[in-house]
Simulated assay, not measured.
Amino acid sequence: MTDTTPVEHSGYVAIVGRPNVGKSTLINRLVGQKLAITSPKPQTTRHRLLGIRTEGGVQAVFVDTPGIHPGQGRALNRYLNRTATGALEGVDLALMVVQGTHWTADDQRVLELVKASGRPAVAVVNKIDLVPNKAALFPQLEQLGAQGCFTEIVPVSARKGSNVERLMQVVGRLLPAGGELFPEDQVTDRSLSFMAAELVREKLMRHLHQELPYVCTVGIETFDEQPGRTEISAIIWVERPSHKGIVIGKGGAMLKQVGSEARADLEKLLETHVFLQLVVREKSGWTDDDVALRTLGYQSE
């Protein structure tokens, strides 16, 4: 999504909210391509990711973040909360995403953080496609309006794209005057190697159940771009030996399914043939070990 209009307004826009309100789906829709992975499970988003849209004289740098939730728990949970709350520092605008008619204690906690940040804010009421009677949205809209911290309240369906362009117009109007922050053809700050690891992890999140999605992470060992093909070797890290058998599956079925689906997405992203090799290894207790987290790419940002 680029054009030749000189950038006159630009800035960073944090997308915040509790888990599973559709933040990653929204950033993908705003940018116009899949950058952030999605699944119905919490903790799908683990890293800060920038999605950049340059259009109509506006460059909006959207910051996708993990869902904000109470409690510290394991080292991984503490990392996720630090990453999410830290996203409000130094941005020009906050988009607080909530879900349709639902309001929870986690939403309230996010609201307090948005208020405390002092940043200009817009409330984004997502998943309106799941509310058949739109009049049922009125109490939520009124409650958000009564908070006194939102410049605008915009109902959207990130999944279907409803009203997302209106949201983009609001963002462009609220961003400060300024030139481009990134080259106009750049859409993210993340490498293709990072995107490859995330696409593999997305398939794990979608296919694994109970605790397993939350104790898996993915690292890229090699990423070799050649004429007409890209060869990628990835390691799936788990916490216990018993996890390895489940991720691999009977006769390797689960690993083959994850690899096949990830490879299809990677070929769309890279626009070339992809050879993807997956290996499963154990790193005991990595989700509650700060040193292990850093070695696996969970760096403070």
Rank of each mutant, 00 (worst) to 15 (best):
D3V: 06
D3T: 07
D3P: 05
D3Y: 04
T4W: 02
S10K: 03
V13G: 03
G17A: 05
R18M: 03
V21F: 08
S24R: 05
T25V: 10
I27E: 03
N28Y: 09
K34T: 09
K34V: 02
K34N: 11
T38A: 03
P40E: 06
K41W: 01
K41F: 00
P42V: 06
T44K: 04
H47G: 00
L50Y: 15
L50E: 13
T54H: 10
G57W: 06
Q59Y: 11
F62V: 02
V63H: 08
P66A: 11
I68D: 02
H69P: 00
P70Y: 00
P70M: 04
G71F: 01
Q72D: 12
A87T: 07
A87L: 05
L88R: 10
D92K: 03
D92A: 13
M96P: 00
V98S: 11
V98L: 12
V98G: 07
T101R: 14
H102V: 15
T104S: 15
T104N: 09
D106E: 15
L111T: 10
L111P: 06
L111R: 13
R119T: 13
P120T: 12
A123D: 05
N126A: 08
K127N: 04
P132R: 09
P132H: 07
P139F: 11
Q140E: 13
L141C: 08
E142C: 00
C149T: 14
C149M: 15
E152I: 10
V154W: 04
R159V: 12
E165C: 00
R166E: 15
L167C: 09
V171A: 07
V171S: 07
G172I: 01
L174Q: 07
L175P: 05
P176G: 09
A177S: 13
G178T: 04
G178R: 04
G179T: 12
F182M: 04
Q186H: 09
L192W: 06
A197V: 10
V200P: 07
E202D: 05
H209W: 08
H209S: 13
V215P: 04
V215G: 04
C216A: 08
V218S: 08
G219Q: 14
T222N: 12
F223Q: 10
P227C: 06
E231W: 11
I232S: 02
I236V: 15
W237S: 01
E239S: 08
R240C: 01
K244G: 01
G245R: 11
I248V: 15
G251Y: 11
G252V: 07
A253K: 13
M254P: 04
V258H: 12
S260W: 11
S260A: 15
E261W: 12
D265C: 02
L276H: 03
L278W: 06
V280E: 09
W286D: 00
V291E: 14
A292N: 01
L293H: 01
T295N: 11
L296G: 06
L296R: 10
